[in-house]
Design a protein around this nucleic acid. Structure first.
Lengths: 168, 168
DNA sequence: CGAATCTCAGCGCAACTGAGATCG
DNA sequence: CCGATCTCAGTTACGCTGAGATTC
């Protein structure tokens, strides 16, 4: 863990106060710094929950994506698009999931260049168990009211869109 | 970069639709996934802005923290508390900043165990230049209305607090 | 032929564990 | 002696570049 004792003041409010003395874009700085900090705190807790299942959050996301596909398999390139990860990172993620027996590689029936990642029965069992833990922990943000979560998602949606996460 | 062509639909909305068929905590899942994605998109842009200055966002944060101190120096342990990073990570960050000539290590005058990291004149110049670029780019979220940014910070604040980022 | 798909080698960054030196 | 502070070695994870094999 990063620190034992919490600070007795909000470090981001304090940073914003100092920031405003010299520089602009204070609201942007505050929001982005808050975003980074919360992501760090939440991700650490998610990884703690997933570690007993032998998963990181990135590997978990890949497994979940496979369970959402009809055939339980997807071309690795498609997975990269959906998960926003580099092609070589997908290779690495699938490597590790395959070593753990949670997925297997299969040749694409119609395209000799592509490789399918297919979830195994063991992979499905691991996803169910890991998901049960995540849902029980409410994704590490159990104490935040649902209205606030919806407001958060709604605020982040146009940010994602403008950053090129999707069109439509 | 991760992907060339944006998806023609919102991948998180789509994931939430599938998720709801089997599992609970859909609002939490949607909010947390959105948070992860936006952090990834924003951080990549911040690092792009900082790279010409020889900085990562983590190193930039450390430098800014030093400029906010009266003496331009802080014990490394204190920096770790403020930035929420592991002691060995602070050692690594200061190592790299020192190699670049942006900070120097000094013995703590009152505590022989502690080490001060002190920003150099070159470090101050680099911070000013990097900050000018970040402010000009509005921290990679230029198109988001200020009211939305404030709402975002306000929503994230209690989440940080409950996660142990600070007290009070 | 060019373009797409994937793999591999290698680099950089950062979080972490565990061990040790130094000092209060 | 205990605890705090920092460093070092080593592991893991991930993102990326560059190069190459294979196939469309």
């Amino acid at each position: 863990m990063a620190r034992s004792t919490p600070l007795p003041f909000d470090p981001i409010d304090e940073a914003a106060r100092q920031w405003a003395k010299r520089w602009g874009a204070v609201d942007q700085m505050h929001a982005v710094t808050s975003l980074m900090r919360v992501q760090q705190l939440v991700l650490a807790q998610l990884d703690d929950i997933l570690r007993p299942h032998g998963l990181t959050f990135a590997r978990y996301e890949a497994l979940v994506l496979l369970t959402f596909s009809r055939a339980g398999s997807l071309p690795m390139g498609k997975m990269g698009e959906r998960l926003q990860v580099h092609p070589t990172s997908i290779t690495s993620i699938i490597d590790r999931l395959a070593t753990a027996g949670l997925v297997r590689r299969r040749p694409h029936p119609d395209d000799g260049r592509a490789v399918l990642a297919e979830i195994t029965d063991e992979g499905r069992a691991v996803v169910e168990a890991a998901t049960a833990d995540l849902v029980a922990a409410r994704f590490a943000i159990a104490d935040t009211p649902v209205e606030d979560l919806r407001a958060l998602s709604a605020l982040l949606k146009p940010v994602r869109r403008r950053a090129g996460d999707y069109e439509d």
